[in-house]
Design a protein around this nucleic acid. Structure first.
Lengths: 202, 202
DNA sequence: TAGATTGTTAATCGATTAACAATC
DNA sequence: TAGATTGTTAATCGATTAACAATC
C-alpha cells in the first residue's frame, strides 16, 4: 500500500498538534485523494473501526500504521560506499524512526577506512562478507559510483544479503531471490520537472 | 510511465558495452517484467518501430528515452538546507545527466553561509525569494529538518516555485498549483525490509 | 523455410470510483 | 432530528496479460 507512509506522516503531524481524532475526509482533502479511497484504505489498515461523526482515534491509527509499515521490529543494514551521500546517510537521524539501524559501513578507499562517522566505524571491503554473515544482516545500501555498483552488489548477494537499496544511478542485476529497490534522486527530480511542465500545458 | 528510468538505465549499460540492438524480450528478462508489457511500453516510447529478429536500435531508443524523460532540456533548481544530506546533493554529479542543475543553495545557519561547495555559494534565506524570482526558477529541493520543512515550503511557493522535492521525513501542505514529491530514504528502506520479510514467508 | 522477433486485438485482473445504507 | 461520518456493494476504468497475425 503505497499511500500508507503519507497517511502515517499526516497522522503524526496531527497527533503532535494534539488532535485526538482524524477523519477520512480530512485525510482525503489534506493529501489530495478521493474520500472513498481513503475510507477503503483505512478500513484495511486500521485494527479498530472508525467512529461516525468523529473519525478514527489518532493514536491507535498511528500505532496500526507503524505496525503495518514494520517500524516496530528493528532491521539492521550495512552501507557500502562512504562518499558524500554515504557519509550523509551514516549521520542521518531518520532511520531509527522507521525501525532501521545502519550497523556498519564499508569503503574501498584506504583514506576513509578507520574513520568514525556518527559512532560507526568505516571498514575495508575485506571485512564485509564475514560481518554480514556473523551478524546475519539481510539489508544493504549501495552508495558507490555507478561503475562499481554491480561488483559490490555481487559481493553482497554472495554474503547473504536479501534486500538491496541501490542509490547509484545505474541498473544492477540481482538474482530473483534478492529484492532490489532503486532510489535515484536525480531521476526523481527529473520526473518532478516533467510533471511541472505537463501541468503548465493543461 | 514509471518503468522508463529502468529501461533507460539498462539501455545505457548495454550501449556502453557496445550492443547496437536491444530486444524487448531481453529487457523483460533482465528487468523481471513480462515480455508483452515491455513490447507495449516500447511501442509507446520509441519513435521508430523495432526490427523483427534483432529488436530496437539501442542508440535511437536511448535518445527517445532521454527525450521522453526530459533529460535534454536543462532545468534549474534551488536547494534549501545544507546539512549532511544537502551538502551531499550539492556535490552530487548525477544531476547533469538528467538535465538538472542546482543553481543556488540556502541555509538559515550563519556558520555555513558564504561557504562554497562544488562551486556553489551557500546563501542566507533572505536572498531566496528574489533569486528565485530573478532567475525564474521553478524547482526546489527541501533538505531541512522536519520542523522547518513547512515554513520553507511556504516561502518557496510564495516565491513562485512550481515543483518541490521534499527530502524531509514529514508531511507538507502545498496548494494545488504546486507539484510535490516526497523522497524519504528511510521509508524506502523500511518498505524494502517489509518486502524481504514477505518473501521469506511465501 | 524456421525461428525469433514485433505489433495488435481481445480478455482478464485489480484498483478506483460511485451510490447507498448504517451509525452516532 | 439533522448532519457528518463510516463501511459495503456494484460499476467503471485502466493497466496487464493472453492469443495471434505479421515481419525479416
Amino acid at each position: 500500500m503505497r499511500r500508507a507512509p503519507k497517511y502515517y506522516k499526516y497522522i503524526c503531524k496531527q497527533a503532535e498538534v494534539g488532535c485526538d481524532f482524524v477523519s477520512s475526509s480530512e485525510l482525503a482533502t489534506a493529501l489530495g485523494l478521493g474520500a472513498v479511497q481513503v475510507r477503503k484504505d483505512l478500513a484495511l489498515l486500521s485494527s479498530v473501526p472508525g467512529h461516525s461523526r468523529v473519525g478514527f482515534d489518532a493514536k491507535l491509527l498511528k500505532k496500526d500504521m507503524e505496525r503495518f509499515l514494520g517500524y516496530n521490529n528493528t532491521n539492521e543494514a550495512v552501507l557500502v560506499g562512504v562518499g558524500n551521500m554515504g557519509a550523509a546517510l551514516l549521520a542521518h537521524k531518520g532511520f531509527v524512526r522507521c525501525g532501521l539501524k545502519i550497523v556498519a559501513a564499508f569503503d574501498v578507499r584506504k583514506s576513509i577506512q578507520g574513520k568514525i562517522i556518527d559512532d560507526k566505524l568505516v571498514l575495508p571491503m575485506s571485512k564485509m562478507a564475514s560481518l554480514i554473515d556473523r551478524l546475519k544482516i539481510r539489508l544493504a545500501i549501495i552508495a558507490v559510483p555507478a561503475p562499481a555498483a554491480q561488483g559490490v552488489c555481487n559481493k553482497l548477494v554472495k554474503a547473504g544479503i536479501k534486500g538491496i537499496l541501490n542509490l547509484s544511478p545505474t541498473h544492477i542485476d540481482v538474482p530473483p531471490s534478492v529484492v532490489l529497490q532503486d532510489e535515484d534522486i536525480a531521476a526523481a527530480l527529473a520526473i518532478l520537472a516533467q510533471k511541472v511542465e505537463d501541468k503548465k500545458e493543461s
